[in-house]
Amino acid sequence: MTLVGVGVGCGLTAAGAAAGGADLLACYSTAIYRAKGLPSALAFLPYDDPNELVRQVLPEVVAAARDLPVFAGVGAHDPRRQPDRLVGQMGELGATGVTNEPFVGIYDGDLRAQLEAAGLGYQKELDLARAAVKQGAMVLGWAWTPQEAAAMAATGASHVGLMLGITAGGRMGSEAALSDEQSHDLLAQMNAAVRRENPSAVTLIHGGPLHSVESVAAALAASEADGYMGGSSLERVPVIDAMATTVQEFKNINLKEEQ
């Protein structure tokens, strides 16, 4: 069976994921926003402290997770926060490990260049991973390019996420920036980079056009990655669709026929 991780933003969806047989859970700011019915992209605008959001929700996710490992999303770029202390704080709340979310990879062009020049780039996420590994915590480290995948694998991260961007399709989804063929090629390159650097790391694919069983199955076959990490495709879309269907079934009760 395929290894499946689920990004969850509340205890209710964590319980559902655990009941469905998920192998691991992650709690991070974008998931918390979508659990509130808001666009995941809101996490990449400066309205809340992502670390504080996770600290508020993490205990209920851990409580609902049964014995599953839970990765806490850590915003590593704030120069006022030390990575080792952030890892320790999440561990005190029950997290098994950390993941580098929010991530600078969501930005490109001039903004990305400005962030990197200010010392707020991907190196901060690598520093977080190394700090967590040093403390004996698990790490789900997201990478956006083969070069980043190799660098993240070199930190000793237990899991490396191969990222294609915000998930396309579904309610509040985005448009996929890459075609299926381009996505498969990029995932294969990233997976190979991880394998060369750290063969023991577990690789998980996520995002872009990967929003259905068929699209994920094809991408796993093409990339030879170990599994799939779902966000909106496993949390927002199933919850909204199931609730909408159930409410409609109750709405369709004909009281006159029932009497």
Rank of each mutant, 00 (worst) to 15 (best):
P46M: 08
A31P: 00
V74L: 10
A176P: 01
Q123Y: 10
V98Y: 05
Y107F: 15
L86F: 03
M138L: 15
V6G: 00
A150V: 10
A137G: 04
T30H: 05
A41K: 08
Q123F: 10
Y228G: 00
G7Q: 04
V194W: 01
Y122L: 12
Q114E: 15
Y228L: 00
E52K: 15
V239M: 06
Y47T: 07
V61L: 05
D127N: 08
S233V: 12
G170C: 11
H159R: 08
L58C: 03
L126I: 15
P199Q: 07
M152E: 03
A113G: 14
G165A: 11
N191D: 14
M172Y: 08
G121L: 10
G141Q: 01
G9K: 01
A150Q: 14
L24V: 13
P199N: 04
I205V: 12
A218W: 03
G91M: 13
A95K: 02
L255Q: 12
D127T: 13
M243N: 05
Q89R: 11
L178P: 01
R196E: 15
N252H: 12
L42Q: 04
L111I: 12
G165S: 12
V8A: 05
A244C: 06
T246I: 14
R196F: 08
V61G: 01
M190C: 02
A65E: 02
L178C: 06
R171E: 15
K36M: 10
W142C: 09
A188R: 11
A18W: 03
A192K: 09
K36Y: 09
P50F: 07
G9Q: 05
Q182K: 06
G20K: 13
A43V: 06
A131H: 03
F250I: 12
T30P: 04
P238M: 11
G161F: 03
W142S: 06
I240M: 10
F44C: 05
S212T: 15
M243F: 09
T155G: 05
G208T: 07
C10S: 14
S200N: 14
V57E: 07
Y28M: 11
W142Q: 06
D23C: 13
D78C: 12
R81K: 15
L255S: 14
A222S: 09
A219M: 07
D49A: 09
D127H: 08
W142K: 04
